[in-house]
């Protein structure tokens, strides 16, 4: 139960984010979650969209380097301590989190959605499910 995430290589210079988002807009892609990791010279823009394949094609056509990866989308209660408990579950299962960010997916009031990139999807999913965490599937994602 993973969702597809799109990663794009973006140089650190004016106009590049505009170019990425323009290319996605022109292909009628809706952005559901976004995060940027940056270094001095470049950044990696990670995006969850409604149609990953179409988005990758659109970006490549515009000369960008883009790839897809499977990440976990987990629902967290919008209250103190819920993120801590998810981290604890993963820690206890010996899962390493490479990075994470929040998505613009409010399925219902009182909950938030976290996107997690971990070193072992299978084990992480199992651990989260065992702890009764709610995960979002690719199918559900496109319906939200």
């Amino acid at each position: 139960m993973t969702v597809k995430q799109l990663s794009v290589f973006v140089e650190n210079k004016p106009g590049r984010l505009s170019a990425v988002t323009e290319a996605l807009a022109a292909a009628d892609i809706n952005i559901r979650a976004v995060s940027i990791a940056d270094t001095k010279d470049f950044g990696i823009m990670r995006i969850i969209v409604n149609d990953t394949d179409k988005a990758i094609a659109a970006l490549k056509e515009n000369g960008f380097i883009a790839s897809a990866a499977n990440v976990i989308a987990v629902i967290a209660d919008d209250k103190p301590g819920s993120m801590a408990s998810i981290m604890k579950i993963l820690y206890n299962a010996n899962i390493s989190v490479e990075y994470m960010y929040a998505a613009f997916l409010n399925r219902d009031k009182g909950s938030a959605c976290l996107i997690l990139r971990v070193d072992n999807n299978e084990n992480a999913i199992e651990a989260l499910k065992d702890a009764d965490c709610k995960l979002i599937s690719e199918q559900e994602l496109s319906e939200i």
Partner: peptide, 15 residues
């Protein structure tokens, strides 16, 4: 110029 093959979604790999 970075190529598709060498790209990764983590900063760590690219660094």
């Amino acid at each position: 110029e970075l190529s598709d093959d060498m790209f990764s979604d983590t900063i760590k790999d690219i660094s």
